[in-house]
Design a binder for these strands. Structure first.
Lengths: 252, 252
DNA sequence: CGATTGGTTGATCCCCATCAAGCCACGTGG
DNA sequence: CCACGTGGCTTGATGGGGATCAACCAATCG
């Protein structure tokens, strides 16, 4: 059966190009096209290679892969991770809709981390050389692209702060508060969401073990800060979680 | 006494603009002007606000300062650090000649960390708005600027790996190997250099205490990996240090 | 059904923080 | 000159936070 327009439902293929435009994408206030007028947005649309589905557990790119494109997340969640010499993973971040993957690869033309979909997801492939050409004609895009790279730098600095001088409880609180604020920025509930990542991924990311994460969830539950069942999470006392994150509240 | 050309020797003032040009700067193969032809390099020279001296212990910018400029290090060393809610420092990096300071501030127009000179240093002030205008006309500069931002991202990812799943010994070895390679890239000895930062700064950066750093130095000394007297350091067995970093060698 | 995957809970242990004392070089003032 | 303080660092003794080990549970799947 032939299809004039690539099907949305066939995994691994491109997505219906009619539906998938920056202007109609719910992420366009956060993503690269932020602040662009319709004309500029169209130009950006034109260079986007393809809009791909990535199934849960599939790897979008792997450490060492040659770098050609950045990927903007339309839908879904990813984790990025490095592999150390011993072959163990270190999760370096969790990404969601509107965020950009692959910026670390620009410096060496090789991907410096791997990116795996935590659920069925969709991304826009942005060939980097085309993007750079576009940047020259679109100051607004240039500006926002730089902001997004800079944001990645500050995000990582926060994680360094977290790993460098926070205790387990504080780390985990910071993690939850961070998720909450990102969901809020996307118009979702800041207090009710599901964890798309396993306890193992969370622990790895926070420099803790899976057992510690389990205990911390339990601790917070007992303190009345949240309820959790499997991966469904409800934050009951966000202000106090924030206080713990800030170190204001010690939390016995 | 009037001076036609700002004196090089007056602290806090601009530096002799005749001597201080990208083309004659020893860092120009690493720094922003990498790969530029003479014409482009001149254009870059023209937008550089001033070349400043920063005395040891002085702060170049502070968290929360409004962002106007990036700073390229001509000479000397800096540390960058964040302050957590409790008022404690977290060192996020050590920077040396040819590296760029302030890229984290682009996203919010405010500095996200503070930068302090570890010794008497010199920087080139690069007004960011001028730089962005220049980028439009100079693809080579655009490319390299993106590479430098990306490099900062990968650098921080490495630190996340370090803080997230390395033991103290491994962290410290990684720190030394990193310094060695950066000095080598600058044409200095990879095996003999002085630590410009205090034990306290090192410990803070690596998520360890000052006592641990002291013990680790001693341990490495006993293992014949290095000699150290005060801040003067001599690496005796770089390959083995690298092996420890990689986790190949366990190091009892 | 058994096997497997992901998570919880308890017992024990160890790495590194913490606490404490002391060393050394330096500056300062009597 | 010494007495004194101070900052940066070293060294030793002790303790704790979280890792590790182990058992168990629940859901899913062939």
């Amino acid at each position: 059966m032939m299809q004039a327009v690539p099907s949305y439902t066939l995994p691994g293929t491109t997505i219906d190009v009619l539906k998938a435009r920056c202007a109609t994408c719910s992420m366009h206030q956060l993503c690269l096209p932020m602040g662009l007028d319709m004309g500029d947005m169209d130009k950006l649309d034109k260079i986007i290679g393809r809009r791909r589905k990535v199934a849960k557990g599939d790897v979008l790119f792997r450490i060492g892969d040659p770098f050609t494109s950045l990927y903007a997340i339309r839908l879904g969640h990813f984790k990025t991770y490095q592999i150390n010499a011993g072959g163990e993973e270190q999760v370096t971040g969790f990404q969601m809709g509107g965020e950009l993957l692959g910026m670390d690869a620009i410096s060496t033309d090789k991907h410096y981390c791997s990116a795996m979909a935590l659920e069925d997801s969709e991304v826009c492939e942005i060939p980097f050389s085309s993007l750079e050409q576009l940047l020259v004609d679109m100051p607004t895009l240039l500006r926002h692209f730089h902001r997004m790279m800079s944001q990645e730098i500050t995000r990582e600095q926060s994680v360094m702060l977290l790993l460098g001088n926070m205790q387990a409880t504080q780390r985990f609180a910071a993690f939850l508060v961070n998720l909450a604020s990102r969901y809020e920025a996307r118009g979702y509930s800041a207090t009710a969401f599901q964890l798309r990542m396993s306890r193992e991924d969370i622990g790895n990311y926070l420099g803790l073990t899976i057992e510690s994460i389990s205990r911390l969830l339990n601790k917070f539950k007992k303190l009345g800060l949240l309820t959790v069942s499997n991966r469904e999470l409800q934050v009951l006392d966000l202000p106090r979680l924030k206080a713990i994150t800030a170190g204001t509240e010690v939390c016995a």
